[in-house]
Amino acid sequence: MLLKVDLGSTQPLHEQLAGQLRAAIASGDPAAGEKLPPARDLAESLGVNVHTLLRAFKTLRDEGLLEVRRGRGTIVTDAASQQARFVDLARELVTESRRSGLTDDEIRALLEAQL
């Protein structure tokens, strides 16, 4: 699993990390069921605060991509790689739509119409 973070970017670090983790899971590395390396090690390697990384973990847990088991570490859920792809697509849809001037209500309507 490769994670990158740009300390010079204006995008908040935890968002960058969540995006990197999501992309990594969508690519299948780490695979479903795999345990992530200790957050402390990753944070140290990336030069970020461990709480920033844990915040990214929490975002992905809320999205159903990660499961935090007490004493067992953070594990990629079975549904994750599928899920990560959809979350990525949804983000892309929202970002692109906003960029082209659509309001959030219009984006909602757009999705609604497809359902």
């Binding site: 490769l2 740009d6 300390l7 390697s45 990336l46």
Partner: peptide
């Protein structure tokens, strides 16, 4: 390519 302030980590088991 790594940007000036970009940090990366790779980890595997």
């Amino acid at each position: 390519l790594l940007a000036e302030h970009e940090h990366a980590v790779w980890s595997a088991r």
